[in-house]
Structures are given as structure tokens and as C-alpha cells.
Amino acid sequence: MRRRGLDQSDYYRGVRMAPYDLVKELAIALVAVLAVVLILAGVLSSPDEPPVTIQSWAQHAPLDLVATATAELQGQTISSDYGPPYNIDRDAVDHDRPAGASVQAFGPIAPQSWAGVHIPITAASSDVLHPLQLASASDPKLAQALLRYRAAARAQRSTWLSRYAAELGHAHMAGGLPVIADPAAAGPLPTMMATLLLVARSGGLDGLLLQSGHFYQTDYTGPLLFLGDGRYLPGLAHAQHLLGDQWGMMNETGRYPGQAWLWLYTLWYQIPPYSTASNADLLVVLTMGVLSALLLLVPFLPGLRDIPRWVPIYRLIWREHYREARRRPRG
């Protein structure tokens, strides 16, 4: 049953052996690596940039938060018409386009659509209307505004929303609230958004966005998607060189090394056709899948497995052996 070539005793026949203490080597390695780790940890510490909260967003970029919330109601953010796994983009379905602005496919390969909606997200209600509904319990003015918004026809709502969104484009902050030129044209939205901003600034919206009917919470899909829909979080990421088109996948906050081992993965996002493709993510994943398979199968691939014979690095690794072989003719 012994397979030839796999049995060590056969394999090493005629090979000169030398004493080698594996356990001592491992012990020395453990101590040496620990010493290096302790020095690096002690001298350089580790990165820990505090998380962004909805509260800090409201404090540092209030108009962006209000504009994002308005866009959620309009269904014009990334998450509101994303497609699977979060939702189906109704507008797209009506216009016979792929059911989601963020759905990627490569020819007939459309795994995102195949997998379907598993994490249902309705950004308008979960990020804006539901939190406002909860906040309106002690705010009759807000309750009235919400009632008016909900009772209005779809066309009326969309008129208010587009007027309000346009006004926000040149709004300024005064007394902690957005000031727009013609509040009446935006219906109940100025009241709704002013309250949303006040609740957000107090920290209340952080809690309301996680309100799920469960006591315990470990899933931050809703708030993270909301943060990602705005410009504040991506702006901070941009400043730290963390965007996809900044080789961001390799980078780390502060002056720390990042995931340098992802250099090839992030490289594709910098060059055409990937950098300009709307399905870049899928293309990169497929490319890396093929390349990973090639790496896995190197021992079987003519060409790839022969490179080591052409590059004389092995002559350095085993130089003692080759030197000795030249000295004593082989038997």
C-alpha cells in the first residue's frame, strides 16, 4: 500500500541527513516573533479611529444629513433603489431595467439577482418616516406634519420633495436648523426634517434607527446603509485614502500599514476596463477568482510551474547542496 515517492524512508534513501531540532526552532520562533510583536505594539500602538455616529454626522454635516434623508424619501439614494439583497427598485421594474441601480451582472452571469432579496431594506421608512413616527409621540407639530405627508397624493409628495431638495442646494444653517428660501413650497418637509435633525443631533436617531422590536441588537445594516448614502462618511474615507479608486482596500487609517496583501485585488479597480465598468465589482471578483484558482493549481499548470526552474532563486536556496554535489560526483 506504500505509494512510491510519498514514503519518506524511500524518498530519503541516499540523502545525507543532519541533526535538526524542530521543537527548539519553534520555541525560538515563538519567542523571537513575540519580541518583535511587543516592540511594534509598544512603539507603534494600533489604529482605532472612533466610529462615526448619526449624531456626529448631524453635528458636522447637518445639511448633508437632511439632504440624504430627503433623497431617501425620493428613493434616490444608493440603498433606496439598490436591488438585491436589500430591495427591488420599483422604478427600474416599471422601465424594464435590471431591478436595482446597484445590481451587477456579467452577460448572463447575474448572481446578485439570482440570490434575491434576503435583507429587506426600505430606506425611506426605516431611516426617516419610522424614526419620525416614534419621535412624534411627544411632538404634536411633527405628528401633524407627518399626517399631512402621509395623506398627500404621491404626485404632491414628489413635488414637495423635489422643491425641498432643490432649496437645500442653497440652504444655510441658522440657529441649528436649515434655512431655505421658500419653506411653504416644501409642504410638511421643513418641519419633518428640522425635527429629524434635532433628534439626530441629540443622539436620538442613532437609537431610533436600531429600533427593531428586539431588545438586543448586533445588526447595523440600516444605520450603515444610511451613513453610506450620505457624503459625510465617504468624505472622511476619502481623506484617509480609503476609497476603492484610491487603492483604498490596501490602506489603513492613520500611519499604519493596511492590508498590503490585497494589492492585486485593489489594483484592478485602478485600471480599465474595471475602473470605468458599472459591473466593476463583479468583474474584479471573477478575475480574482480565476487568479486564485491559478495560484491553487500552480503545481499542475505548465508554464506557471516551470518559472521556478528558469529563475535561479532555487540555486541560492540550495547553494550548499549544489556546491557539495559539484565537489563529490553523484553516485
Partner: peptide, 19 residues
Amino acid sequence: NFASQWIAVNAKDAINSTG
């Protein structure tokens, strides 16, 4: 922390594209 937030928001599209 912030890195977790951004990596999650940024990486979701690639993960989602594969289904």
C-alpha cells in the same frame, strides 16, 4: 470603529455582486 464602518459600506457592493 471607523475603519469597520467604511470597510463594511465599501465592501458590501463586491460581496453583493457575487450574490
